[in-house]
Structures are given as C-alpha cells and as structure tokens.
C-alpha cells in the first residue's frame, strides 16, 4: 500500500493554521497546551476531509472526538517530527487519510519529545484491521526515509505534495 492509495488529495493541508505559544527553554510543555494543539490539528484535518466530500458534516465532531480519545490512550507522535493521529470510526466505509504540514512545528507529546512537522491522519472502518495495519506500515516505512521527509517538508502546495506522494516508489 502506498500513501497516495488512501490520502485524499483535496484534503492535504500544505500549511496548518494551528499554532502553539513559544516553548519556554528547558521547561516541558504544559499538557493543556498540547491538548489544545492536538484538537486544533485534528479538527483542521478532519475539516478538510469534510470539505473534500469524504466525511459528512454530521460526523465531523464525532470523528474529532474519537481521534482525540485515541490520543489520550497514548500519543501517536512517533518521533522524527512525525505524528499519525488515527481512529476507527463507523462513519468510514473505507480507509481514508489526509496529510498536513506545520511550518513551525507543533508540540504533540511525541515519543522523542520533539516538535511535529508532518501529520498523517487516518480514519478507517472498524471491521477492516488489515487495511488499517497496512496503512500504518506504509506511513512508517515512508517516513523512515529522511530524504522523502525533507522533500515533503519543502513542499509549499497541495499539488507539490501530491506529486511527491504519487512519484514516491513503493519502497519509500
């Protein structure tokens, strides 16, 4: 499975509007700030899935809540500036996802404590664990390639991001 198989092109966000107050040097992030940032990011990403016609308006709030509830069970900030917020949800009839970039980086309670610049949000049906696992594997495998991530973060437009995803070799 490749990223372009499940990421919705029209839902890609080249530059998130979510922001966080500057970090205090040497101090850990206030959990409330992190929770607020997570909600901003997730809401913006689910919002673009709705705007692109892949999530009904009536399902947006519930999907946002489900993704945030999943985050409370353990962060999906896997380190290396990547996060994969996700949830299974009955509203999804197939696996869909979107990708968003943060230009300044955002606190996301990452496993390595670093800011996150690349977000991939997944929403999958509850009865297709194989698709969900394959998508997670695809994200992890692709994002392990430092060159790919560097190119991705340099993209400025949705079209540039999509072209990169489409041209990425399956092994990336």
């Amino acid at each position: 499975m490749r990223l372009c198989n499940f990421i919705v092109r029209d839902a890609i966000i080249p530059s998130l509007t979510a922001t966080a107050p500057p970090a205090v040097p040497g101090a850990s992030r206030d959990p409330t700030t992190v929770r607020t940032v997570k909600e901003q990011v997730v809401r913006e990403m689910v919002g673009t899935l709705h705007a692109s016609g892949h999530v009904r308006a009536t399902d947006v709030d519930e999907i946002v809540r489900a993704v945030l509830r999943r985050e409370e069970l353990g962060t999906t900030g896997i380190g290396r500036h990547i996060a994969i917020p996700h949830s299974r949800h009955q509203a999804a009839d197939r696996l869909i996802g979107t990708l968003a970039l943060s230009r300044d980086g955002l606190p996301f309670d990452s496993l390595d404590g670093e800011q996150v610049y690349v977000f991939i949000l997944l929403v999958s049906p509850q009865d297709r664990p194989g698709d969900h696992l394959r998508a997670l594997e695809s994200v992890v495998r692709t994002m392990r390639n430092d060159d790919f991530v560097r190119q991705l973060r340099a993209c400025q437009t949705r079209e540039e991001i999509w072209a990169l995803l489409e041209n990425a070799a399956p092994g990336w």
Binding site: I78, P129, G130, L133, E137, V140, R141
Partner: peptide, 12 residues
Amino acid sequence: SLTDLIMLIALP
C-alpha cells in the same frame, strides 16, 4: 522499536 513492530503488519 514501536515503528519496527508496526511494520510487521501482524494481522488478527
């Protein structure tokens, strides 16, 4: 490694 384990794609 969390990411190594994810890449196993160990199905039910």
